[in-house]
Design a protein around this nucleic acid. Structure first.
Lengths: 338, 338
DNA sequence: TTTATTTGCGATAACGTTTTCGTTAAATAG
DNA sequence: CTATTTAACGAAAACGTTATCGCAAATAAA
């Protein structure tokens, strides 16, 4: 069922039917009604590809993220999707699995207009940003969230990584930690470094010794991450506090502690950036810095749509910060003195 | 940058360039090389909408699921996406949020050829299936997974719901439960009923009394679900075992137990269909029936592509069953006799 | 040499929309 | 009563591909 057939059924021209369906003022109300009725009767649906081709707009956005089985990216997608639904947009999803090669491949694919805009959170491994510049050059609307590329001049939706990290570290210190390890995911990612800097700052303020051996860059697969953490916690002078910059690392730490029979929080306290739904049900419940994932998703999508719809293109804030909140639970509870 | 411009640069016709890019045998190797080189140089990317319009194929599949913040649907998406990536397909995602109206809206939208095929898992609330029949009528390839519509004649990827439920119930009984409650999500969904029947069967076999009051249909939002469970666990003759048919209900039960100061597993044992990554880290660790989510996603996608590519259309198995595994943990641990 | 066949390429017609322009007839203005 | 505008519609040209032809020239077969 296409316009041609519909037009024939109505004994009208294609253009009239098309205009009627789009509620053009050129068409009389009477014909509009007839057309609408017939369209509904025959269950006519415009071909999206013909439409997109002609209008050079696809009503589609692309979301490029590292993974989806994740209590941060999941709610972000919810946020994005909720706005997209309101606007009648479609959402394409691309998972990099933390692989920069895939990220590059996706951005290349997305240079051909398949999506009207792109929402993106970088892979751990992403170091250079040529592929992102290419998108910028092609003038494809782009918005980063969470894991942003600082050097690319597009809107970014982030949380207050530095301050949150200061607070998290302070929280560990306040609860008695003297030797705190920081678990990072990347040496290059801006978000990692901001969090690291917050940690370093808080240590400095509190005259806590920082040590390169206490900063772990946990890359690779789960096993590799766990091996690193196991080594850290097996040292003679192991840390008494762990600050995980992402959720997965906190869970790895939990598993290793169980394996090594280390008690959380008595032997080692754990705090993490995390949106884990089950944080309060863990053994022990996990103290988290919870990011406003859903809000970030909504904000990112809303910002992207402003770009796509070219309204005040140049007045968009470069970066939008939505604060995280620290939720203290048992994994950082003050231990009774021995 | 389009074919026309590329052709002009090469002093060739549009059709020659097009064929060269698609590696047609009609074109000499020499020209092919020239064309490929120029295309790479000018970073030419075919317009996907023009292509789709012409070929009546979009290289896109749609995934319609209830939610994404979920340790079952998340891995399923991974599975789907992994196959889609191999095949060079794009993935559209639509979230129903368990709302049948949205499910209907999405299926209507997807009747216009935007996607070459659809993967779907029904919403809790989905009762009638007219919207699904419509898809079938339009001959749009469709594959169900997990939450399937039994009466629609398309391939279905499921787990052994009945047997798994029998085993789960038996596990509770073996560990001392005499009075087991079943938490369901829907009165109509086929998957819910299969799981319920497995539970009923096991109870019958073991001469355990079943009682309508022990079967809870937990619909509505989280609060509503919790209210129902709270009421269940506050009864004078409360159950000593809970079988949650989905993960979320197990988590609600955990929260209510904490609220009511009920000890798991001593006061009440809990088992659940669940793919929770943190199941082993919970307090207490949760006994689960773990579904092969990733494999189901891959299988569903692979099946869909067979339909889309029309190879042996009619020889596809109606239903593919991939077994779940029961992982016993502390939430069902045999309690010491009082 | 003549006749077939193959090789390599170009013109052109779709695919189903949207949109710009005409074109007519009726309504309004002068 | 003419002149001009407006209202309502249709014809046709895009949008960027792909695929079906057609057509030479080159090669092979007779």
């Amino acid at each position: 069922m296409n316009l041609k057939q519909l037009a024939k059924e109505l004994s009208l021209s294609i253009s009239t039917v098309s205009k009627a369906l789009r509620d053009s003022h050129e068409i009389s109300i009477a014909t509009k009604k007839k057309v609408l009725a017939k369209a509904k009767e025959l269950n006519y649906q415009a071909n999206p590809y013909a439409s997109s081709l002609r209008k050079q707009k696809s009503k589609t956005i692309a979301v490029v993220i590292p993974e989806v089985v994740n209590d941060f990216f999941g709610p972000v997608i919810n946020g994005i999707e909720s706005i997209a639904q309101e606007k009648g947009y479609h959402v394409l999803i691309y998972l990099t699995h933390e692989d920069m090669q895939k990220e590059v491949a996706f951005t290349n694919i997305l240079q051909n207009g398949r999506a009207d805009g792109i929402l993106m959170s970088l892979a751990e491994q992403t170091t250079d940003t040529l592929h992102l510049e290419a998108l910028k050059e092609r003038d494809i609307p782009l918005v980063f969230f969470d894991r942003v590329a600082d050097n690319i001049d597009v809107p970014k939706i982030i949380t207050d990584d530095f301050n949150s990290s200061v607070n998290a570290t302070q929280h560990l210190i306040d609860n008695g930690c003297k030797r705190i390890a920081f678990l990072s995911i990347s040496e290059t990612l801006s978000i990692s470094n901001k969090r690291l800097n917050g940690y370093l700052e808080a240590c400095k303020t509190n005259h806590i010794k920082t040590d390169n051996n206490l900063v772990l860059y946990c890359t690779g697969d789960d096993q590799a991450k766990k091996d690193l953490i196991r080594k850290l916690l097996s040292r003679k002078n192991r840390p008494d506090g762990i600050f995980a910059s992402v959720e997965k690392l906190a869970l790895c730490a939990y598993e290793i502690c169980e394996e090594l029979k280390l008690n959380i929080p008595d032997d080692v306290k754990v705090i993490s950036f995390s949106n884990l739904k089950t944080a309060s049900l863990l053994n022990p419940s996990l103290t988290t810095i919870t990011q406003p994932a859903f809000a970030m998703g909504r904000e990112a999508a809303a910002t992207l749509f402003k770009l796509v719809e070219k309204k005040g293109h140049h007045f968009l804030q470069e970066r939008t910060v939505i604060n995280s909140t620290l939720v203290a639970r048992n994994s950082t509870r003050l231990s009774a003195p021995k």
